[in-house]
Design a protein around this nucleic acid. Structure first.
Length: 560
RNA sequence: CGGGGCGUGGCGCAGCCUGGUAGCGCGCGGCCUUUGGGUGGCCGAGGUCCCCGGUUCAAAUCCGGGCGCCCCGACCA
């Protein structure tokens, strides 16, 4: 029974005032979701239908690769998380039960599943194993945003693989990757698989699946044969014109000029002919000076990975005390070790002189200071990717990720098995996440037009939106009632029938807002010619279907 | 966590500066009208003005505190 008049489908003429993202506005306007609190969203019937369709695709593709569905609790003993070392995560919701026992709300389920696997898996004969669930995740996000894009509670398809060795992991990882490609294709998304950061915890590899769209929180660097999250992307920089070399560095007076933007024009040089010196304090290593070309930006994740340790930028007082006058520090005669970004090519640069109001020109790396070379800058559009193509930067939503965990969880939680030789070995794990809500939101972001949502068939709340003009008891209604019943016999609940006594404008506008793939319009005008009018939402094409074969005609439009 | 903004019928907003009657559009209910792009008319319902405290004869409005929400940034295992 999906008659619009009896469905909880509250459409809105205007978007909520505080909505920015297209998907946020349209999902609220089309009656898919409503907000309960910051980062907390209710799915109304139409929205939930779409989510469940995504889940259906996920189930099919997971099962197709031998991944078995199960279900784990959201509420978990804190102890497990202390054992895995993740209890300190700020996003982890922590609470106590009535006895005062410490509990947490799971933000993923590695701990829980590894706990079970540790107890049930004994032999190499029990491996490999792939399991998944579609379950709620709770994360105390610092800043929920953009409707359903970043929330504190959401459902996730999380899959986990258990293998005896790295080779097995590679196989499982490959299978998941293939399933992911089919999933995102079936959901009609434009997406990229990009290399991603594995974090300080390690892991031997990770990829993110990114759907380009304006509301994205991530940036991806793309070039022919190359795709990486900007967080870890690496590329050849664009060249910069450097001044003629000097026999030795020379002082230049730069009174009051402390930034690249002030010094470069003063000397008539491009910013890239200057070197930016960034003092950082590294956990366990003290203060270092990182050198970046003046027109480049430091990539903190790449620096963290290069250091193999956490760090922070030094504060003003720390710089004065350990390095030199803020704004005038440089590598020549530096009191701390120097790391030079690889994008600083050989040549003569301007740097701080470590004396107030003074810079040096003609400074040449190697000749005038010692350094360790690292790659820690943020790539930019136009840089040359490893494959030789020019990089383009796109913003994107992360819709899924796959991660080679290795033994990150199996070792602390004691998940091991005996191999053929009777040796105990830790299970080698992978984890694989997809957010159904993000698939829905990304689809809307990528496909919507100025009239509303444009669903792909696979995840539309209804595939057919039947609009009857006229009111109760009139001929067009009777014709529509018949077609509705016939359609239901063919595609079940996948048709919504707008039987409201509203004006034509309102019904048609709502149909476009909701964005179902095929709209059938039954009105006097068409009926006089013996036809119903079918319009496909994606291309706006009109099709005149004879009344007597309207259902067949609709089905033909659908599966094509 | 830093910065900015907002909180007044279901939605979008005005009123606040300069204290005294809570208002508009949409939506909602009834009747009539209209039925190929949010039709028109008449009548009507609906508000603890985010909360607590203070000032005052009197607070949506002024003061103090708190809460909530949004945006930018940081963060995002």
């Amino acid at each position: 029974m999906t008659r619009f008049s009896q469905t909880f489908l509250p459409t809105l003429r205007d978007p909520p005032a505080d909505a920015e993202a297209i998907s946020h506005k349209l999902m609220v306007r089309a009656g898919l979701i409503r907000q309960l609190g910051a980062g907390l969203w209710t799915y109304l019937p139409a929205g939930w239908r779409s989510i469940r369709k995504v889940e259906g695709v996920l189930r099919e593709e997971m099962e197709a690769i031998g991944c078995q569905e199960m279900l784990m609790p959201v509420l978990q003993p804190a102890q497990l998380w202390k054992e895995s070392g993740r209890y300190a995560i700020e996003e982890l919701f922590k609470l106590e039960d009535r006895r005062g026992a410490e509990m947490v709300l799971a933000l993923t389920h590695e701990e829980c599943l590894t706990y079970h696997v540790a107890r049930e898996i004994r032999s190499y004969r029990d491996l490999p194993l792939m399991l998944f669930q579609i379950q709620t995740k709770e994360r105390d996000e610092a800043r929920p945003r953009a409707g359903v894009l970043r929330t504190r509670e959401f459902t996730m398809k999380d899959a986990y693989s258990f293998d005896r060795d790295e080779e097995g992991l590679d196989r499982s990882y490959g299978l998941q990757g293939e399933a992911y490609a089919r999933i995102f294709d079936r959901c009609g998304l434009r997406w990229h698989r990009v290399e991603s950061d594995v974090g300080v915890m390690g892991g031997s590899g990770a990829h993110e699946y990114m759907a380009p769209c304006a509301a994205g929180e991530n940036e991806v660097a793309l070039a022919p044969g190359y795709a990486a999250n900007v967080e870890i992307a690496s590329a050849e920089p664009q060249p910069v014109e450097l001044p003629a070399p000097l026999p030795a560095p020379e002082d230049v007076s730069t009174p009051g000029l402390a930034t690249i933007d002030e010094v470069a024009p003063h000397l008539g040089l491009p910013p890239g002919a200057l070197i930016k010196a960034l003092p950082v304090i590294v956990e366990g290593r003290g203060t270092l000076m990182v050198l970046i070309r003046g027109d480049h930006r430091l990539n903190e994740i790449k620096l963290r990975n290069a250091l193999g340790a956490e760090f922070r930028l030094a504060g003003g007082e720390e710089i004065e005390a350990e390095v030199g006058p803020v704004g005038y520090i440089g590598p020549v005669g530096a009191k701390v070790p120097v790391l030079k970004d690889a994008a600083i090519a050989p040549g003569a640069y301007v740097t701080g002189a470590n004396r107030l109001d003074t810079h040096l020109r003609g400074v040449e790396p190697g000749r005038d200071f010692e350094f360790e070379e690292v790659d820690v800058r943020t790539v930019e559009a136009g840089d040359i990717a490893p494959g030789g193509g020019a990089i383009e930067i796109e913003t994107a939503i992360e819709i899924g990720n796959i991660f080679k965990l290795g033994t990150r969880y199996s070792v602390p939680l004691g998940a091991s098995f005996l191999d053929e030789s009777g040796t105990e070995r830790p299970v080698v794990m992978g984890s694989y996440g997809i957010g159904p809500a993000r698939i829905v939101a990304a689809s809307i972001e990528q496909r919507a037009d100025d009239r509303g949502i444009v669903w792909p068939q696979a995840i539309a709340p209804w595939r057919v939106h039947l609009v009857a003009l006229g009111k109760e008891g009139e001929p067009e209604r009777e014709a529509a009632d018949r077609i509705y019943e016939d359609l239901r016999a063919e595609i079940g609940a996948d048709v919504i029938y707008d039987d409201r006594d509203a004006g034509p404008g309102e019904k048609l506008t709502d149909a476009e807002l909701l964005g179902c793939p095929v709209r059938l319009l039954i009105g006097r005008r068409g009926l006089a010619d013996g036809i119903v009018e079918a319009t496909t939402r994606a291309d706006g094409a009109d099709h005149r279907l004879p009344v007597e074969s309207a259902v067949e005609g609709t089905l033909a439009l659908l599966d094509g």
